[in-house]
């Protein structure tokens, strides 16, 4: 009896959660799809993003891609050695444990704190809100996500596999890159995509540091538009055309995040064919 009631409640709860997901996607489709035209994707806004009725969101799409690709590449280059360094081949157990904890806490730090920190540092160095500033802050945001996700995967690799390579006369470095890296590749790809998805969707961290503009940036020191901020700023106007741009931006952003989520699973499966379990 009790079991039946609870089971009913459980199924109801799960349905509620899944309905929320379906509902959100549905709302985005209904609102965003009509606004999503070719010119929306291809053009930059005319007459100011906040007031101008003409033009599209190319500035935000390109800007977001610049920001998150830039940050992902830098974060990847930094986090790969860090993830290796957390393993016991390179660091003492206590220090690694401590650093893992630090990274876990950093992972949870609200992105607005990263934004405020980045802003202070940029003011100190005299950098204006720019592509460079946005990339730096997003890199900081992505770093703990990438390092810890890679670390979890690399940690699961059996020690015997390393031994095989060492026994053949490979150095630690050669073992790390020729064997550990390849064995962990599916997980590493997933980690990068996870961080990329987080980075491209984050608004609070780049609010102060990347700025917003109608144009596509020409240098690292230009301010840059981004999809999350395109939604955030443009939804606030009373002009329906501008709101349409916000909906379209949101739909594109959602689309990118969905693609990244699915792609990470498919790629991980593809890359895992050659690894042993």
């Amino acid at each position: 009896m009790e079991e039946t009631i609870f089971k009913g409640l459980m199924i109801a709860s799960l349905t509620l959660v899944l309905t929320a997901l379906a509902g959100m996607i549905l709302i985005m489709l209904i609102k965003g799809a009509p606004a999503l035209t070719l010119s929306m994707i291809m053009e930059t806004p005319r007459g100011g993003y906040y007031l101008g009725k003409e033009g599209g969101i190319a500035n935000a799409i390109v800007g977001s891609l610049y920001l998150s690709f830039g940050a992902s590449i830098i974060a990847f280059l930094l986090s790969l050695p860090m993830a290796f360094a957390l393993q016991k081949d390179y660091s003492g157990r206590q220090f690694a444990r401590f650093t893992r904890l630090v990274l876990d806490v950093l992972w949870g730090v609200p992105s607005i704190v990263y934004g405020a920190f980045g802003f202070v540092v940029m003011v100190y160095f005299g950098i204006r809100a720019s592509l460079l500033g946005g990339i730096i802050v997003l890199t900081l945001l992505m770093l703990p996500i990438m390092v810890r996700s890679m670390d979890e995967v690399i940690r699961m690799i059996p020690a015997e596999l390393k031994e095989v390579s060492i026994a053949l006369g490979a150095t630690k470095l050669e073992t790390t890159f020729a064997v550990i890296f390849r064995q962990g590749l599916p997980g590493i790809v997933t980690a990068v995509l996870l961080a990329f998805g987080r980075g491209i969707g984050d608004a609070a961290s780049i609010l102060f540091t990347a700025g917003y503009t109608d144009y596509i940036p020409r240098s690292l020191y230009d301010p840059v538009a981004s999809l999350p901020l395109a939604v955030f700023f443009q939804i606030g106007t009373p002009i329906p055309e501008v709101q349409g741009r916000a909906y379209a931006s949101a739909l594109i952003l959602l689309f990118i995040v969905l693609i990244v989520c699915v792609a990470s699973r498919l790629l991980a499966r593809r890359f895992s064919r050659k690894i042993i379990r």
């Binding site: 608004a203 939604v231 952003l253």
Partner: peptide, 12 residues
């Protein structure tokens, strides 16, 4: 997917 949806979309 739900966890990965950007917060600005939740807000919207």
């Amino acid at each position: 997917i739900l966890a990965g949806i950007p917060s600005v979309i939740y807000g919207l």
